[in-house]
Amino acid sequence: MDIPVVDFAAWSLRNRNISDEPIHTVKEQLESAFTQVGFVFLKNTGITQEEVDRIMAVSKTFFLQPEEVKIPFRRDSFDVNPNHGWVRLEVERLNPSCPEDLKESFNVTSISPDIKWPSGAAEDFQETQTSFFRRCRQLSLRVLRAMALSLSLDPQVFLSAHRLIGDEGNGTTLRSLYYPSVDHDKVKERQLRCGEHSDYGSITLLFSSSGGLQVRRRSGEFIDVPYVPGAVLVNVADLMQRWTADRFVSVVHRVRLPPVGDSSTRQSVVFFVHPDDDALITCCDGSNKYPPVTGGAYLEERFKASYGAK
Rank of each mutant, 00 (worst) to 15 (best):
P22R: 02
R266V: 10
I203M: 01
P22E: 05
G220A: 04
L206T: 10
Q126P: 00
G220H: 00
P22T: 04
V157H: 05
R302H: 07
P292I: 01
F106V: 01
W243G: 00
L164K: 06
S131G: 04
D101T: 02
M147A: 14
Q65D: 03
T35N: 04
E31A: 14
R175E: 04
S208F: 09
S208R: 12
M1F: 14
R93G: 00
E104P: 08
K188Q: 15
L64Y: 12
K43W: 11
Q214E: 12
S219C: 11
D7F: 00
E67C: 10
D76Y: 15
V143P: 07
D2W: 10
N83F: 09
W117F: 09
W11L: 15
F271K: 07
T204I: 05
V293A: 09
T172F: 00
P96K: 09
S112M: 01
R163N: 15
V187D: 02
R145V: 01
G261W: 03
L144F: 10
F62P: 05
V234I: 12
V69M: 14
S263F: 06
D114A: 15
L164Q: 13
G211M: 11
K70Y: 04
I55C: 08
P99C: 11
F125N: 03
S112I: 08
T45N: 02
V234E: 06
Q129F: 15
S208W: 11
H84G: 13
V249M: 06
L239F: 02
V80F: 14
T244C: 08
R142Y: 05
V293R: 01
E28D: 12
A309N: 15
S202T: 15
L151W: 03
F207K: 00
R74V: 06
K116S: 15
V293W: 03
S131V: 03
R75I: 08
G308P: 09
